[in-house]
Design a protein around this nucleic acid. Structure first.
Lengths: 130, 130
DNA sequence: CGGTATCCGAGATGATACTG
DNA sequence: CAGTATCATCTCGGATACCG
């Protein structure tokens, strides 16, 4: 009988803790892409909308508002007609960008392996059923 | 008139592309925590369930199945009574672990800043309304 | 212990219309 | 252009029950 009950916890991860909440935010489907896109450039609302294929106006708006609230993205309104609003990473956002980018890079680099693993898994399952 | 229409795209991010799909998977609320927890240790189903506060049996099961399918997590069944199943990172999963961990570390390190930014944002909004 | 199957409700999201 | 408001939908995930 081994000791199964030693403490395997590496950090405090209670459901209502701050870290979990923030993690859910920044690891969000749209947030990831926005942060990844706003590298060294600032982009307008419509540019982001064009670049992020499939995002609705509403979801882009909601996402940008959350990122702005979290101090990761800055919103600059130019008082011109028609309106022009630029979004850019804040210094805090730039520190996060590195990590997000490495996540995207990892995915690009290993997508073949994952596709292969999935195919293998599905083939095995098919075998089981027959 | 500036040139707004130069290509700001840094990678191919069509909605149905592989990278987006995988990103959504691994940046998932529960997947992140599972991968972060399975550092150098392997854990049993119930251990994971205990450690990841708030996860339902169903969601842990679904999440593990997806990670297994993607070749990130290995599932080892020990033919004993009662059953014992160990989950661990595969070599591929371990390469992802570094990145995930740095995301978690970033969050821990900057949670105060984010809390401050949120409070400031909310205060500003309150001012506007009054 | 370690799951899967089914059902169902809440919250997330899209579509549409409207505005400064 | 850059949003917000409203409504409809629909997916995700919890609860429950059951199985090897």
């Amino acid at each position: 009988m081994e000791d199964d009950d030693y403490d395997v916890r590496q950090w405090d991860v209670r459901e209502d803790c701050e870290v979990r909440q923030i993690l859910d935010r920044i690891a969000d489907k749209w947030s990831l892409l926005v942060i990844a896109l706003l590298d060294c450039q600032s982009l307008r609302f419509t540019q982001l909308r064009r670049e992020i294929d499939g995002v609705s106006q509403r979801m882009l708006s909601v996402t940008l508002r959350q990122l702005e609230r979290d101090g990761l993205v800055s919103r600059t309104v130019h008082p011109v007609v028609p309106p022009r609003v630029d979004y850019a990473l804040t210094p805090l956002g730039r520190t996060l960008h590195q990590t997000i980018k490495s996540l995207v890079t990892w995915t690009e680099k290993h997508q073949e392996e994952i596709a292969t693993a999935r195919a293998a898994y599905d083939r095995r399952r098919e075998m089981m059923e027959s």
